[in-house]
Write a protein that binds this DNA or RNA. Sequence first.
DNA 1: CACCTTAGTGTATTTTTTACACTTTACTTG
DNA 2: CAAGTAAAGTGTAAAAAATACACTAAGGTG
Lengths: 246, 246
Amino acid sequence: MAPNMVLNNYISVDCVVFGFNFEKLNVLVVERTLSDGSGEIEFSDLTLTGNHIYEDETIVEAADRILFDLTGLADIYLEQFKTFASPDRLKKENDRKWLLHDGRDPDKRIVSVGFFALLATQKVTIEWKGRNVKWMPVDEVGKLAFDHNLILEEALKALRSKLLHEPIGFELLPEKFTLSQLQKVYEIILDTTFDKRNFRKKVARMKYLIPLDEKQKGVAHKPARMYLFSREVYELTRKEILNFIV
Amino acid sequence: MAPNMVLNNYISVDCVVFGFNFEKLNVLVVERTLSDGSGEIEFSDLTLTGNHIYEDETIVEAADRILFDLTGLADIYLEQFKTFASPDRLKKENDRKWLLHDGRDPDKRIVSVGFFALLATQKVTIEWKGRNVKWMPVDEVGKLAFDHNLILEEALKALRSKLLHEPIGFELLPEKFTLSQLQKVYEIILDTTFDKRNFRKKVARMKYLIPLDEKQKGVAHKPARMYLFSREVYELTRKEILNFIV
DNA sequence: CACCTTAGTGTATTTTTTACACTTTACTTG
DNA sequence: CAAGTAAAGTGTAAAAAATACACTAAGGTG
């Protein structure tokens, strides 16, 4: 056995939970606070949400469990995007103080399998199970603990790439949504704008976006038509689009 | 600490090395043989090529090292595509007999970070370092050890998806290549055919495919013009193509 | 030098992309 | 209840890209 082989590793799953609120792309963060016993808060920081994989679980099961613990939701779009492990993942700056409290040995490596989840922010009841969880716009997230800024950055790259190549925008919206809402998803995440008429022409060709006989309610202007994504139609009509064949 | 938290894990990197020989897509496999001491071979099977991550390495460094050990090559296209870990990854069928010889505890989980590499088969001098390594056409690979058939399947999916959306086909060819060779890469991997004239019209638009004043040699027919991929031009002119904006 | 094999090329049609501005609808406010 | 306001919804012309399709050119081989 090689002398410098790594035998003891913590395997964890980190979930980058993206939520759209019709305005901005948000991410779920957990605030950790550490008291010194007198009731004073000694440290406080923000992390993405992760946990270890249990012995009898697959990676996907762990990711589903973590997402459920965090949001109370199942059947959420969830995708493995990248795995992270640097020898110094746990040795940075002021992270050590946490590790002692977590009972984790800071000299061991944590390998983290990154997932991203997509949902409409409104689906999550914050304070689920009393966890100190909150939505933050991704462009306002400051320093996160560990290497979680890196993980968030990579999750964003993966999300953008996926959004460009597969129809997943509606995963960030309620089940029924308007075309303007959908357009906004693309505009915000890809940091661009689209012409409304051209966007709608494109939608018209995507047969899996089904217009409903139902209108938006409670808005102070002409109410928009609601749409639905049909997975059945999508699976039937999907064909790979070869853009970059060279 | 949760009682069923997994603390001891082996983290390994598995490389699916794809090679194109102008005919078929191949994959590098390693033959393992186990003798009973009398010189007779007791077991023999095929695996993809993996190894553990050392303490002072990042994941990418480990992947580069594994690829170099296997092929003697550096600077090869290499991409992390998926991470695998099932509780029963090591407990299948007749795999246990191997584990005892490897000094690995079969009750521990191996988490495997999957990479795929792309190169022209001719670049690899087989029998590098005397390892029992060989190219096999991917459509002729039979049963592999562990869950390596699954890993190969997923690598193929990732390769196809990447090929559809980014210009990487030439990574499977020598530095200088002809357009017919490039077309063949796409046809074989995507299991389709393209019209030659339309394919070339598309190439003409991809400014990063540079025609050379150099012709194919040693062929019994009209020699083709050689082309080169220019990363510089690609980076300058690249723009995301929004296919699936909905 | 005839033949074999692959390289290389053009055009017409359809589809998709792009650029661009006004009318409609429902609610709100005075 | 009329006017205002805010976003919804719609068409067209021009350019670019995709598709379908068949012959000539070049070099090596026997």
